[in-house]
């Protein structure tokens, strides 16, 4: 376990657990919740789009693309970086 970060700061291939949604997300927060971005969920950063944005994560068994704007609202706890598949 290392220091808490936002999803934005993770690199491709890193695994982490959703810790908290920072306030200020607005409508996007409900959307993220609906897509399964809930506290305690483990996910893998699959890849970053060719121009550095959006980010693709593997969460709850499926692939989800999130813009960096939105990723900045998600606080995560990075897991030990070695596993190559979420869960």
């Amino acid at each position: 376990m290392s220091n808490p970060k936002t999803l934005l700061e993770l690199k491709a291939g890193e695994t982490a657990v959703i810790k908290k949604m920072l306030p200020g997300g607005g409508a996007i927060r409900q959307r993220l919740l609906d897509m399964g971005v809930t506290r305690g969920t483990e996910f893998l950063v699959e890849r970053v789009a060719p121009l550095g944005d959006p980010v693709e994560i593997f969460i709850k068994g499926y692939h989800l693309a999130i813009r960096k704007n939105e990723a900045a609202f998600i606080d995560v706890t990075p897991a030990a970086a070695k596993s190559n598949g979420a869960k």
Binding site: I28, E56, Y62, L64, A65, R67, N69
Partner: peptide
């Protein structure tokens, strides 16, 4: 209005 947030599934 705000741009629609982009949270999209990449289906298999």
């Amino acid at each position: 209005g705000e741009q629609t947030p982009f949270v999209m599934e990449l289906p298999p």
